[in-house]
């Protein structure tokens, strides 16, 4: 029960003294830590970003190709292919911009504190 009681205390300790802890714990300690503290829940905005970019990557380019060849510019497949390639790059640049705006502080839980 002693380890069970330590959960909240240990979590607090990692928040302020994570730099002093060794980055790679010994395997037994790692397993113990994983059992006690399965890690913070993934924040919702990260999940939305993840699903948004996955969907955009899956259906964006190929959907634009079929949309443009069938409805917007029927008969011109090369234009549709160019639009699909441009669309893929738009998704890429959106991802780069979103990733650039991500906070990169040294403390691992800066996002949680904000």
């Amino acid at each position: 029960m002693a380890t069970r009681r330590n959960v909240s205390k240990e979590e607090k300790k990692t928040e302020d003294a994570s730099a002093s802890l060794p980055a790679v714990l010994p395997r037994a300690m790692q397993a113990e830590k994983m059992k006690n503290n399965p890690g913070p829940a993934i924040p919702n905005d990260v999940l939305f970003k993840l699903f948004g970019f996955t969907l955009a990557m899956l259906i964006g380019p190929i959907g634009c190709y079929y949309l443009s060849t069938n409805y917007i510019f029927p008969g011109s497949t090369v234009l549709g292919a160019s639009i699909a390639a441009v669309m893929a790059n738009v998704v890429l640049f959106a991802f780069v911009i979103v990733a650039m705006r991500e906070p990169d502080d040294d403390s691992p839980d800066s996002r949680k504190n904000k």
């Binding site: 990557m57 380019p61 190929i62 190709y65 090369v78 998704v91 890429l92």
Partner: peptide
């Protein structure tokens, strides 16, 4: 990883064409 995915999209577009 995203950039590698775009390479797959390029070849997919050409194959569909």
């Amino acid at each position: 990883v995203v950039m590698s995915g775009i390479l797959g999209v390029y070849s997919l577009v050409v194959a569909v064409l």
